[in-house]
Design a protein around this nucleic acid. Structure first.
Length: 140
DNA sequence: TAGGCCATCTGGTCCT
DNA sequence: AGGACCAGATGGCCTA
C-alpha cells in the first residue's frame, strides 16, 4: 500500500467550495458520501489490481526480476491469446512442443507490443518464465 | 533529475 | 438517491 498523496484533503472529501452555503448537516452528509465513495473507489481499484496480478501469473514473462506493468500485461495477454489461438487453429502443424509457442508469439506480436520486453534478451541468455502454459500442455 | 508507473482523490455520467 | 465506472489531476516512489 502506498502512502496517500492526499492533494488537498485526504479522506475527508474536499467539498472545498462554499462549505458555508450548506447547512452543517448537509455538509456532513456530503462529506460522508465522499468518504464512502473514496473507499469504494479504493476497493474497486484494489480488485482491479488483483485481477492484473492474476493475469500476470498466467501470462508469459521473461525474467522474474521485474513485473510487467499494467499496459505490458494487457499487451502480453493479447499476444498470448492470439498465439494460443493460432496453435489451436493451425492444422498443418503437429502438436507444438513446449517452447514452440514462443516462436509463434513473437511471430504474432507487433514490435511495439514487445519492444519493452526485449531488454530481457530471452532466448540465449535467460529462460523465459511461464508456468501455466507448460501445465496446459503437460495436461494434454 | 527526468520520466515511467502507480495509488488516491475527485467530479461527472450512467444505471438501478 | 446511491452505487459503479471512468478519466483527469496530483504527488510519491523508483530507476536510468
Amino acid at each position: 500500500m502506498k502512502s496517500r498523496p492526499s492533494p488537498s484533503c485526504s479522506d475527508s472529501g474536499s467539498e472545498s467550495s462554499e462549505p458555508d452555503s450548506k447547512s452543517p448537516e448537509k455538509f456532513e452528509s456530503a462529506t460522508r458520501r465522499r468518504m464512502a465513495a473514496n473507499a469504494r473507489e479504493r476497493k474497486r481499484m484494489q480488485g482491479l489490481n488483483t485481477a492484473f496480478d492474476r493475469l500476470r501469473k498466467v501470462v508469459p514473462q521473461w525474467g522474474q526480476d521485474k513485473k510487467l506493468s499494467k499496459y505490458e500485461t494487457l499487451q502480453m495477454a493479447l499476444s498470448y491469446i492470439v498465439a494460443l489461438n493460432r496453435i489451436l487453429t493451425d492444422t498443418r502443424r503437429p502438436a507444438a512442443p513446449h517452447r514452440q509457442w514462443l516462436d509463434l508469439q513473437l511471430d504474432v506480436m507487433q514490435p511495439e507490443s514487445y519492444s519493452c520486453l526485449m531488454r530481457y534478451e530471452h532466448p540465449a541468455g535467460q529462460e523465459y518464465v511461464h508456468s501455466s502454459f507448460c501445465c496446459e500442455f503437460d495436461a494434454h
